[in-house]
């Protein structure tokens, strides 16, 4: 017998499997352009501490892509809710709100991990082989948890596809560029650093980069991401009930 969360998760996996080749190609395009434009062309002469810019960029891209792909589950839910009405199948099923959220969050995290894997392979093709240790994967999982949970909550709160797209533009796109993906936050003035450390992606990028460079990341990054993950997950559960009109 399959539990409620697993039913939701397995449905997402069936859909993911059917779309996988298309998705892998899509996930590769933007990072490839970033690697070529910023890493290879612009960054060839830049070094950050003892690392090349390409080495600096790859963990940042992993943070960014895991965020965008985990958050993309929100768009899938939004389409399932407002266009295909499949969300009603879950609402009418004897499963708890927590089970529904867990299934969708796991689906978002799976997408994030696969997309991050694409970056690591692309990075390797560009000659970037870093230390992908336990700290690295833990930061990746926590970052995915935060944004997949946030995505479910947002998908339950918005009232249309347009609202969902607007939130992507307002929250995710700025964070992708400002959260320590492309530049070291430490180079900025103190006030800007303080502002950027309010973004979860900044902590994720820092933890991923530090781990990938073979040093132990600060515990605070993990605590912040875990705390935010717990909060956003709880928020997602609360919002599922609100989605009933």
């Amino acid at each position: 017998m399959i539990r409620g969360w697993a039913a939701v998760y397995l449905r997402e996996l069936l859909i993911l499997r059917r779309r996988l080749s298309r998705l892998l190609a899509t996930w590769a395009v933007s990072p490839l352009l970033y690697l070529i434009a910023f890493g290879y062309a612009v960054g060839r002469t830049i070094a950050i501490k003892e690392h090349s810019y390409l080495e600096f960029l790859v963990p940042g891209l992993v943070a960014m892509v895991s965020m965008t792909q985990a958050f993309a589950i929100g768009s899938e839910i939004n389409i399932a809710r407002f266009y295909w009405h499949i969300f009603e199948e879950f609402q009418a099923a004897p499963i708890s709100h927590a089970a529904y959220v867990l299934g969708e969050v796991l689906a978002g995290m799976t997408r994030a991990l696969l997309a991050a894997g694409v970056i690591l392979i692309l990075g390797a093709l560009f000659g970037v082989l870093l230390c992908y240790n336990l700290y690295f994967w833990l930061a990746l999982l926590l970052n995915s948890l935060v944004f997949a949970s946030l995505a479910v909550a947002v998908a339950m709160l918005v009232e249309s596809h347009a609202d969902q797209a607007m939130l992507n533009s307002l929250i995710i796109t700025p964070m992708a560029f400002l959260g320590g993906t492309f530049f070291p936050v430490g180079n900025l003035p103190g006030w800007a650093q303080k502002a950027l450390y309010l973004l979860p992606l900044t902590h994720a990028a820092e933890a991923l980069r530090t781990a990938a460079f073979g040093t132990r990341p600060p515990a605070s990054a993990y605590l912040i991401l875990a705390g935010l993950g717990g909060l956003t997950f709880l928020l997602a559960i609360l919002t599922v009930n609100r989605a009933r009109n």
Partner: peptide, 19 residues
């Protein structure tokens, strides 16, 4: 409100899982 990207059988299977 069926999953259009899935097969007839998969749609039924998901419902079975949910129940």
């Amino acid at each position: 409100n069926l999953d259009h990207e899935l097969t007839v059988s998969e749609n039924l299977r998901i419902h079975g899982w949910l129940h």
